[in-house]
Design a protein around this nucleic acid. Structure first.
Ligand SMILES: [Zn+2]
Ligand SMILES: [Zn+2]
Ligand SMILES: [Zn+2]
Ligand SMILES: [Zn+2]
Lengths: 149, 149
DNA sequence: AGGCTTATTGATACTGAGTTACAATTTCTT
DNA sequence: AAGAAATTGTAACTCAGTATCAATAAGCCT
């Protein structure tokens, strides 16, 4: 099966659900898939406005659950009232190492988590869908700052 | 060193910080440590009211960051606008397997996560503080429901 | 024990993310 | 081209969490 673009995948998803493909949805998806980083609704809205793309925040809020349902994006973490997302379509699954002080993020993946998923599935009888591992620490720069303080 | 109760630990923490030990704080902590499960602010508040313990929600909200700072409790997850916490003082660190449908939670721990922490520490130069692993799946009961649907 | 300083409390007002209601508009099917 | 139904933007709303502030109380010092 040939690789399908995010837009194609989403069009099919919408059709399946009896939902409609609109210019607003297209604009938001294009914007999301042009940002190759973690993003939040407010940042997305602001960057769209700056480009003259006028969609309401309500439409963004309404679209996000659909993109999650369609496995195009996923929630990565929630910090201080902000929910952050990232693309997952076409990306290897990965986890996040975050600096508690400066909020810097490192991404990593580890095959042991797949093994663990398998074991949990057998042990508890769950069908495993995904996992989210956040490791929290202090980066080298922030450690240096702390030591000199 | 002998085992110290949560209250003792917290009294020392407060003293260290030049803060005061009040009946309200004591009541909240006792309530929290009598609940051996994940809890949220609203549930805590309601169960205290039912027992005739009158403290304001503001005091609960103000206390929680202190208990986290003192390593007595930790945030476990955030779901649909609710933040859930659990005791960590005197408990082994563990992670959570959650059913997406019915929200049931299984706890588990795995020594491989400690190894992973160590490797990440070396690879990225971080001082690792903790990790939070959430595995999301569908429990056997909910799988059965889905199949028959 | 009494007095003083300063932290804490509860009430209330506020903030900000996310949701909802609804009339106007647009998509999609036939 | 017409009509049913979904989607849009606006504005009102919800609700967790925070900030303000006057009244109160903890802890320290004598
Ligand atoms: Zn840092
Ligand atoms: Zn990421
Ligand atoms: Zn279930
Ligand atoms: Zn737990």
């Amino acid at each position: 099966m040939a690789f399908q673009s995010e837009l194609e995948v989403f069009r099919k998803f919408l059709k399946n659900q009896g939902m409609r493909y609109t210019p607003e949805r297209e604009a938001i998806i294009k914007e999301i898939f042009s940002i190759h980083d973690h993003f939040d609704v407010d940042g997305l809205y602001i960057s769209m406005r700056r480009k003259g793309l006028r969609v309401s925040k309500a439409s963004i809020y309404r679209l996000i659950p659909l993109l999650i349902e369609a496995n195009l994006i996923a929630e990565v973490f929630f910090d201080k009232g902000q929910t952050y997302y990232e693309h997952i379509y076409g990306h290897e699954h990965h986890c996040h190492l975050r600096c508690k002080e400066c909020k810097k993020i490192e991404e990593f993946s580890d095959p042991r988590l797949k093994d663990l998923e398998k074991e949990l599935s057998e042990r508890f009888g769950y069908k495993i869908l995904t996992h989210k591992l956040q490791v929290i620490g202090i980066c080298s720069k922030c450690q240096a700052k702390e030591d000199s303080a």
